[in-house]
Amino acid sequence: MQEQEFSPQQSLNLIESMINKARNRFSENGHLYLLWGWVILVCSIANFISAYFFNSLETLKYVWMLTVPTVIYQMIYLARKEKNEKLKTYADDIYNYVWVVFVIMGFVSGIILGKSGNTSLFNPVILSLYGMPTFLSGVILRFTPLKIGAFCCWVLALVSMFIPMVFSFLLLAIAVILAWIVPGYLLRSRFKNQN
């Protein structure tokens, strides 16, 4: 079997990859955690205000439309980021697939819950789903605040089963603060210090 010869650039990329793995350096800057954290926070609080003060959930479908331009922005952001990355590790691939699975699970769960007509379970299910990619991301990135945020999501999902639905929007807001916004700022700080 003939050994494969590396070009000088491939050799440098391999060495850089090994150094980055050894240093546990990562390219996660917290940007998307902050983006989605703030978008979901605004939507959740708007839904709470609408339901509690105006006794209307009609705004539910309109407020959450804010996620559509956010998804478009995220796709553009990730495409540009991937284009600028010099090398991609196996951990990066796993990290991305964790979030793809989350989106698919959220979409499927939304359809199932919508079809069942049991809207009171929507926020508990979403809260429990938030915990899965957050926890796995914390494991992959070796970042404890994400793991703690995930546990907070799971506890809040259970709590939301025992309170009126209107208040579960506040729990959703608390969850994204603890699971995405606070860790997002901490990730940003860690990224700046490492780079």
Rank of each mutant, 00 (worst) to 15 (best):
F135C: 03
K147I: 11
L78V: 11
I72S: 08
R23C: 02
I72Y: 05
G110M: 04
Y52Q: 15
G37A: 06
A79C: 00
P145G: 06
L113K: 04
I45C: 00
I148V: 15
V39L: 13
T134S: 07
S17Q: 10
Y52K: 14
M65T: 11
V71Q: 01
N55E: 12
G138V: 06
V71R: 02
N47V: 05
K88D: 01
W99Y: 10
G131S: 09
K83R: 13
S137N: 00
V68I: 15
R23W: 00
A51S: 14
E85G: 03
E85P: 05
F143W: 03
E85C: 04
M132I: 15
V108R: 01
Y73W: 15
G138H: 03
G110D: 09
L78D: 11
V100N: 06
E28Q: 14
F26K: 13
Y52D: 10
S44T: 04
L41T: 08
I112T: 09
L78M: 12
I126F: 03
V71A: 12
C43A: 14
M132E: 02
E85L: 14
N96R: 14
V103I: 14
G110R: 01
L146Q: 06
F102R: 01
T144S: 08
V101W: 07
L57S: 13
S17F: 00
F107V: 11
Y95M: 11
V125L: 04
M65W: 07
V125E: 09
G30N: 04
I40Y: 07
L57C: 02
Y97A: 06
L57H: 10
S120T: 14
F54P: 02
V100M: 07
E58T: 13
L136M: 13
T144F: 09
F107D: 00
F54K: 05
Y73M: 07
Y77E: 05
T89E: 10
Y62H: 14
L78Y: 13
A51C: 02
K115P: 03
L129D: 02
A51L: 05
W64F: 12
G106N: 10
F107W: 12
R80N: 14
A79D: 02
P69L: 06
K115D: 11
F53L: 13
P69I: 05
E58W: 08
L146A: 05
K83A: 12
I104L: 15
E16H: 03
S17K: 04
N20Q: 11
S137C: 05
F26R: 08
Q74T: 15
F54I: 08
K21E: 15
M65L: 15
N24W: 09
T70R: 03
V139A: 08
N29D: 15
I19W: 00
Y97M: 13
M132Q: 03
V42M: 12
I72K: 12
V100Q: 07
N123T: 12
L129W: 04
A22H: 07
